[in-house]
């Protein structure tokens, strides 16, 4: 992956919300394998069924709403983190096959698989000896 492509994976567009309340940018790991990119995002407390992964115009957006029952007016003795939805978006290069993107959410970690399109997969070239 070139530097340019890495930059392209940066936040592509600011997060848009339809719901009021705080929205956090989850920490992510981005890994590359021979045949796919994997994006792992920390979304603790998010409801797996409501996680929304959207791919449009080359921008992959992730919106993970948090369980609303947690957003109560508690009187905290110590509050070090806020509770709110998670959103973040990435611009994905054309090398990805958008129709085969899959997502799973387990233990508060959202894992997205972005399979590379056939054209860019590394291919071993056999050298013929004469």
């Amino acid at each position: 992956m070139t530097d340019q492509e890495k930059v392209a994976l940066e936040n592509a567009s600011p997060c848009e919300q339809t719901r009021s309340g705080p929205c956090y940018r989850p920490n992510v790991d981005i890994l590359e394998k021979d045949d796919e990119l994997i994006v792992m995002a920390d979304v603790p407390g998010a409801v797996a069924e409501k996680v929304d992964v959207d791919f449009a115009d080359g921008v992959l957006s992730v919106h993970a709403p948090v369980d609303e029952s947690r957003q109560t007016d508690r009187k905290y003795l110590v509050q070090e983190f806020g509770i709110g939805d998670y959103c973040r978006s990435f611009r994905v290069s054309e090398q990805i096959d958008p129709s085969r993107i899959t997502a799973e959410c387990r233990d508060g970690v959202l894992r997205l698989h972005l399979p590379k399109s056939e054209a860019v997969k590394p291919r071993k070239i056999a050298v013929e000896a004469h």
Partner: peptide, 26 residues
């Protein structure tokens, strides 16, 4: 002066509750 993952602590009538975000932890 903390180190490590963030916690929230609150008090209810009969108990103290501590919540910590530990994504990926089993």
């Amino acid at each position: 002066r903390r180190e490590g993952p963030a916690v929230n602590v609150w008090e209810e009538d009969d108990a103290l509750r501590v919540e910590m975000e530990v994504p990926g932890v089993k």
